[in-house]
Design a binder for these strands. Structure first.
Lengths: 203, 203, 203, 203
DNA sequence: CATGAATGAGGTTTCATTCAT
DNA sequence: GATGAATGAAACCTCATTCAT
C-alpha cells in the first residue's frame, strides 16, 4: 500500500488520442482490477499489474505517472460504470421505482466483482487519494432520487449519505461472506433503505 | 547461514512474566493504535510503532512475532472493549432497549477513535488475517439481542449480520466525514436498524 | 500491508533476456564465490555479495530469490565445472587411467580455490539445501569409472561413495592446511583410492 | 553462524570450583550439542541453547563470555572424549591392532551423534576459532600409532594427517547418508587406511 | 515509443549481548 | 548469582521508479 513520498499528479500522462494507446490504457486498468481482486492490496504492485497487462513496466509509467494514478483510474472506471447504470434510475416513473432501481444497480455492481468493489471502497478512503476521487456526482444522483422518493424528508443530503453507507455496508459484507443470491440480498437492502427512510423522514 | 522456515503465528510470543513487560506490551499496542490513526496504513510500520511506543524494535519483536500479530492484537483489544460494553445490553429489560444500547455502544466506540475503528474494520477483512480474528462472539451477542427484540424474525442470523453491516457502514461513513454529533447519528442508526427489522421480519 | 507467503524457491528468478543481465548474473555468482572465499560463511551476506559484484542489492534479488538461491547457483556452477572436467575421464583407455584422471580433476578443482571448494562442500550438506543440490550425476560418473577400474568389486555404489568421500576428505584437509604441491597430493590420493579399491574388492 | 565483531576470549569465565556451577556448565554444553544436532547451524543461537539447558540467557553469559566460547567448549568436550577413547589404542600390542582400535573409536564416535560430529568438524575450521581449537594432541597420537604400525613410512606426519582426513571424510559421509551399520563401515575404513598406508609407505 | 535491467530507500526481522532488578 | 526484558546493529528483502538501450 505504501508509496514513496514523491508527490505525483494523478492524471494519466497523456490523453489517448490514438486508439492504440487507448487500448493499452484500458488493458492496464483492467489488469490492475484483476491483480487487486486476486491478490488483494498485498500483491498489488506496479510490476504485477504490468505483467498481467502484458506490457512492460516502462510502458505502464508511460501512461500513468505513478501507482496512485493507476488506482485512481481504476476507481474512476468503476464509479463511472456504476454511475451510468444508476443514472437509468432517473427515467423511472415513481421515486420508489427509481430508488429500487438504484439499489438493484448497487447490488449488481458490488456482487459482480465483490472483492474489487470492496477494495476500491477502501482505497477511496485513503488520505493520499482524498480529493482526487470525488463522490459528489454519485451523491447528487442519490439525493435527487431520495428527494423524489421521500419528498418531505427534512435532510435529504444526510439521508442520501446514510443510504449509500447502508447499501455499501450491507453489500460489502455480503460479498465478503460469499453470498451469491442477488434477489435475496436486494430484498434485504430494500428493507433497510425503505425502513430507514420511512422512520427518518417523519422526525 | 540463514533462512528459517518462517512459521509466522499471530499469537504474542511470550506472556509477559514481569509487570514491566506487561506495560511494554500495552504501550506497543497503544502505539500501534496511534500510528494507525495518525498515519493510516501507509505509515503503519514496525519501526514507527516501536518509536512511538518508546521501545526498541527488538522489544516489539520480543512480544509480537511480526507486524500482522500486532494488528491482530490491536483488533482484539478493540473488539474486547467493544464486546464488554455491548454485553451490558443483555441486562436490559426489553429487547428494544437492549438493541438501543447496542447501537449506542457501537456509535460511541466508533466515534471515539473513528479512523482507528474504520482502519481496523478494513484490516479485519484482510485475507492474511482471516481466521485469526473471529467475529463470532459479537455475532452471537447481536443474534441473541435480535432474537429478543424481534422474536418472530424468520432468519435472525441473517438479520444480525445485516444489522452489524448497517451499523458499521453508517458509523464508519460518519466517522470518515468527521461527524461528531453522537445523538443525531445514533438516531439515524436506530431508524435504519428498526426500519430494517420491522420490514424484514414480516417477510 | 505486508507479509507474503514466502515461497522461496532456489531457481533463479528470471532467465536473462538481454546479454547485459547475463553478465550481471555471472558477476554476482563470481562475487559470491569471492566473498565466501575471503570472508567465510560469517561475512557471506547478500549486501557484501552485491557490493563486491558492483551491483545494487536490488539487482541481486532480481535474479536470485534469496540468499540460498545464490548459494545453490554457486554450487551448481562449481559442480558443473568439475563434472565437465571429470567427464573427460570417460574417454580414457583403461579404467585405471580414467580413475587417475578423475583424481587429478578433483585435486585440481579443489586446490585451485581451496576455501571455496571446502565451503561449498559444507554448504551442500545444509538441510535447507537438501534436494536442491543433486550429486547424482557425479556419483554415477564415479560409479561408471569404478566399474571399469575394478570390475569385480562387489558393491560399486558403496565404493564410489567412499571414494568420493576419501578424495574430498583428503583434498579439503590439504587445502585447509594450505598445501600447494599438487603432484604430491595427487600421489597420496591415488594411494588411498587404489589402496581402498584393492582391499575392498577382494572381500 | 555470524557473530558480532566483538573480540572475546574463549575461555569459560570461571573455573567451576563449586559442583553446582560445574553441573550448570555441563548442562549448557550438552544443550548446545542438542541444539546443534537438531537444528543445525541455522538455529544454533544462544537463546535457544539457554532455553534448552533450562537456564536463563543471563546465566549462560555468566559462564561463557560469548557464543564462540560455547562452541569451543563443545568442541573440546567432544575432542577430549574421543581422545580418551582413542588413547586406549596405545596399550595395544601391535601397531596394527592399535590402528584398528583407533579406527573403531573414530567410527563409534562419529556414528553415535553423526550430525554433531559433522557440524563440529565444520565449526573447527572456522577462521574465527582457528587457534582456539588445537588438534595437535590428536595428531600426535595418530602419528605415534602410525609410527608403530608402519615404522618405515617416510613421512609419518603427512600420513597421519591424511589418515585422519580419510577417516573423517568417510565417516562423515556415511553419517550424512544415514548409515548405521558400524561393522561394515569400519571394515571399509580399514580398507582405506591400510590400503593407503601400504601404498604410500613404499614410496 | 517500448523495453526491462538497474536502483536504493525503506521496511521487516533476528539474535548476540547487556544490565536493571 | 540468577533472571529475563531490553537493546540495536546488521541482515534480509521488496517494489516504486528511472533510464540506457
Amino acid at each position: 500500500m505504501s508509496q514513496r513520498p514523491s508527490h505525483k499528479p494523478f492524471r494519466p500522462r497523456k490523453t489517448p488520442a490514438q486508439s492504440r494507446s487507448e487500448a493499452t490504457v484500458a488493458s492496464i486498468v483492467e489488469a490492475a482490477a484483476q491483480v487487486l481482486e486476486s491478490e488483494g492490496f498485498d500483491g498489488f504492485n506496479t510490476n504485477a499489474v504490468a505483467r498481467r497487462a502484458g506490457v512492460s513496466i516502462g510502458s505502464l509509467y508511460q501512461y500513468f505517472p505513478g501507482k496512485d494514478a493507476l488506482t485512481v483510474a481504476l476507481i474512476r472506471r468503476e464509479s463511472t460504470r456504476f454511475y451510468e447504470d444508476a443514472s437509468i434510475a432517473l427515467s423511472k416513473r415513481s421515486g420508489k421505482a427509481a430508488l429500487e432501481y438504484l439499489i438493484g444497480a448497487a447490488v449488481r455492481q458490488q456482487l459482480q466483482r465483490p472483492m474489487l468493489a470492496r477494495l476500491l471502497d477502501i482505497a477511496e478512503g485513503r488520505p493520499a487519494l482524498r480529493g482526487e476521487v470525488t463522490k459528489t456526482e454519485m451523491e447528487e444522483l442519490v439525493e435527487t432520487i431520495v428527494g423524489r422518493a421521500s419528498p418531505r424528508h427534512p435532510r435529504p443530503d444526510v439521508a442520501s449519505a446514510d443510504l449509500l453507507a447502508i447499501v455499501k455496508g450491507m453489500v460489502d459484507a455480503a460479498g465478503e461472506r460469499g453470498e451469491r443470491d442477488l434477489d435475496d440480498l436486494e430484498r434485504r437492502v430494500r428493507a433497510a433503505v425503505f425502513g430507514y427512510l420511512s422512520r427518518s423522514a417523519s422526525e
